[in-house]
């Protein structure tokens, strides 16, 4: 009898879970802002992924004859002071920006979850881990990222490390808060009563229930990371020229902003559109996955 009931429960949960996923998707697709964000982000992502298909120009190839060409049919985004195609530079810049953003998100997901889960579940670790997180969060984000990249030396990888270090405590705090709620749930007690170990409880019962706020947070982290990377490379701490990043294109274009404003203008608009797209995605995900969080931001 008991086994029959449990198999019935197992077979019931599979379509149920699928149905739940389907309704989440439906609700997201009906969320106008989410769809707008999806559109913006997909546009930039396609530009980044298919950069070498969308342009045959070399983003680093200089040419004296084509200096300061304004946007036209032959040069969609114009050319810069070295006669390089801005279209190619912005596309390859998108590649780097999104890759750095993704790197920060992945590191955040791993270490944020790890630290947050440890602090939330093992109460003895909570105090020390959260004080360390507080100390990291006492520094203004960009200032600490600047300090770390200034010490490690400029470059994309170091920018990823610095931004991950700056944002991980923030992600860990969010994971911890959900773990604190989940660990008091009856199903956790039930699992404990069945003799499940700490790791199994964390992995199978607690963390899956902390996913919604984590996904929302990581979407926003993606947006912040892209924005902060642009600041770092604007200051000369990101990838070094001639490798194009949105930040260093804007920084180089700054001197010619009177004669050739498009050099500065276009990468800034693309950067803002990317961040806007990600913010919209985050808002949509938050509204649908976790309406309780709505008040906080």
């Amino acid at each position: 009898m008991a086994t029959e009931a449990s198999t019935a429960a197992v077979t019931a949960t599979v379509p149920q879970r699928r149905r739940r996923k389907a309704t989440v998707w439906h609700r997201l697709l009906r969320h106008r802002l989410f769809v707008t964000g999806m559109f913006l982000f997909t546009l930039v992502a396609i530009g980044a992924i298919f950069a070498d298909v969308l342009t045959t120009a070399d983003p680093q190839k200089m040419s004296v004859r084509t200096r300061f060409e304004p946007p036209s049919l032959s040069y969609i985004f114009g050319t810069d002071n070295f006669g390089r195609s801005q279209w190619a530079r912005v596309l390859y810049g998108a590649q780097l920006s999104l890759m750095i953003g993704l790197g920060v998100v992945v590191l955040n997901a791993i270490f944020g979850t790890l630290v947050g889960a440890l602090a939330g579940y093992f109460r003895s670790l909570d105090n020390i881990l959260m004080r360390i997180a507080d100390a990291f969060m006492a520094f203004p984000v960009i200032l600490l990222a600047i300090g770390i990249t200034a010490a490690l030396g400029p470059g994309s990888i170091n920018a990823v490390i610095a931004l991950a270090a700056v944002y991980t405590p923030r992600t860990a705090r969010i994971v911890r808060a959900s773990v604190l709620v989940a660990r008091e749930m009856e199903y956790v007690q039930a699992a404990k009563a069945c003799g499940a170990g700490d790791w199994r409880i964390l992995r199978r019962h607690i963390l899956p229930n902390c996913m919604a706020p984590l996904i929302v947070q990581l979407t926003f982290i993606f947006a912040y990371a892209v924005l902060s990377e642009a600041v770092l490379s604007f200051l000369g701490l990101g990838a070094q020229p001639p490798i194009p990043t949105w930040g260093n294109i804007i920084s180089e274009g700054r001197q010619y902003i009177r004669e050739a404003p498009w050099i500065t203008l276009i990468p800034g608009i693309v950067l803002a559109a990317t961040v806007l797209g990600l913010n919209l995605l985050g808002d949509g995900l938050r509204d649908v996955l976790d309406p309780r969080l709505k008040v906080q931001q």
Binding site: A223, I250, I257, P261, T264, G268, A272, V275, L280
Partner: peptide, 18 residues
């Protein structure tokens, strides 16, 4: 407000100067 949150401040500064 959303656009304000998404604008890179250094870029905005340059545009305001121009």
């Amino acid at each position: 407000a959303l656009i304000g949150v998404s604008l890179p401040n250094f870029w905005l500064g340059l545009i305001l100067i121009v």
